[in-house]
Amino acid sequence: METVSVIVPCFNEQETIPIYIKEMNKVMETLSDYPFEIVFIDDGSNDRTLDCIKSIHQKDGRYHYLSFSRNFGKEAAIYAGLQNVKGDYVAIMDVDLQDPPSLLVDMLHILKTEDIDNVATRRSTRKGESMIRSFLSRCFYKFINVISSVQIVNGARDFRLMKRSMVNAILMMSERNRFSKGLFEWVGFKTHWIEFENIQRSSGQTKWSLKQLFFYSLEGISSFSVQPLFLAFLLCGLLFSICIISIFYSFSISLFFLLNAFQFLCMGILGYYISKMYIEIKHRPIYIVKERSEENE
């Protein structure tokens, strides 16, 4: 019998977990012909998230958990989930109900009846999101799709349901600097997209600050494009040409400072890529599991 696994990354979500459980139980009742395993990945929470998950696991064996030794980030949580689930169909979704569990019913039906490997979701609107977040998000998707050969759908969510073959392909890529939205597209496979309007969190506040989103966007750009390095090369060539010309002509002091700024920019771009290489070659584990549900059975 085909099984369904659901990966649910969690970081300080003690308020949202009980609400999520109620909605997920409704889905499993609707899809009662399919055995489910729901795996919570506790990403080093410092509230009662792990206690909530443990309590749920004791009452319902379909719910499992992995608990990290510290906060390794959502990307590490997704990877840990993919490594540890066993289902023929694997879903990734947030616990705050911004990814509606009820969509899993339609997603599984589409995956079973159409010649596709992956049902993914995207937000058709950003209603309720701040203007600055919406603007920066649109800029990011436009920019990365210009400089990268991997095209990422605007508004794409991590929420998706995949066949085992696609999951196995993703697991073949074990890099430390991960950007799952890009990895999902890079491996290929046929994708069906479902759109839904932006949904506010069921409880609590978002864990993603603008600073974190900025560095996450840099992660995506550096993971799937070397165009910034090419840009740095062009800028260095331009600076060299200007320096040669300046030997014969007099330039203002402001131009001197501008040239130095460009040089530091190029050094910064090169340094960022080198730092990513440094992290990769150390081969440290992507995550460390402190505790798992199977150990307490």
Score class of each variant (00 low, 15 high):
1 M>P: 08
2 E>N: 15
6 V>P: 08
6 V>T: 03
7 I>R: 08
9 P>D: 07
12 N>C: 07
15 E>I: 02
17 I>T: 03
19 I>W: 06
21 I>H: 01
28 M>V: 11
29 E>C: 05
30 T>L: 14
30 T>A: 10
39 V>I: 15
41 I>Y: 03
43 D>Q: 03
43 D>I: 10
43 D>S: 14
44 G>V: 08
44 G>Q: 02
45 S>Q: 04
50 L>N: 00
53 I>E: 01
55 S>C: 03
56 I>T: 03
65 Y>F: 13
67 S>I: 07
69 S>Q: 11
75 E>N: 13
75 E>D: 13
76 A>F: 10
78 I>V: 15
78 I>L: 07
80 A>F: 14
81 G>H: 11
89 Y>W: 12
89 Y>K: 12
89 Y>L: 09
95 V>W: 05
96 D>V: 14
99 D>V: 05
101 P>D: 09
102 S>Y: 03
103 L>G: 07
103 L>I: 15
103 L>T: 04
104 L>Q: 03
104 L>D: 04
109 H>N: 05
111 L>I: 12
111 L>P: 10
111 L>F: 13
112 K>N: 14
113 T>K: 10
113 T>W: 03
119 V>N: 08
125 T>A: 06
127 K>T: 04
129 E>R: 10
129 E>G: 02
129 E>I: 06
131 M>S: 13
133 R>V: 10
133 R>D: 02
135 F>S: 02
135 F>G: 07
140 F>Y: 09
146 V>S: 00
148 S>F: 06
152 I>K: 11
155 G>P: 01
155 G>V: 06
158 D>K: 04
161 L>Q: 01
163 K>L: 00
163 K>P: 02
164 R>N: 01
166 M>E: 14
166 M>I: 12
167 V>H: 11
168 N>Q: 03
169 A>N: 08
169 A>P: 04
171 L>Q: 02
172 M>N: 03
173 M>W: 05
173 M>T: 05
173 M>D: 04
184 F>V: 06
188 G>Q: 12
192 H>D: 08
193 W>T: 11
199 I>Q: 11
199 I>A: 06
202 S>V: 14
207 K>D: 01
209 S>F: 07
230 F>S: 13
230 F>M: 06
230 F>L: 14
232 A>S: 15
232 A>E: 10
236 C>M: 14
237 G>T: 15
240 F>K: 13
242 I>V: 15
243 C>S: 09
246 S>I: 10
250 S>N: 08
252 S>P: 00
252 S>R: 01
255 L>G: 02
256 F>H: 02
257 F>T: 00
257 F>S: 01
258 L>Y: 00
258 L>S: 05
260 N>W: 04
261 A>G: 11
262 F>N: 00
262 F>G: 12
265 L>E: 00
268 G>Y: 07
271 G>V: 13
271 G>E: 02
272 Y>W: 09
277 M>W: 06
277 M>C: 13
278 Y>N: 04
280 E>V: 10
280 E>Y: 09
285 P>N: 08
286 I>G: 09
286 I>L: 10
293 S>Y: 14
294 E>T: 15
295 E>L: 15
296 N>M: 09
296 N>V: 12
296 N>E: 09
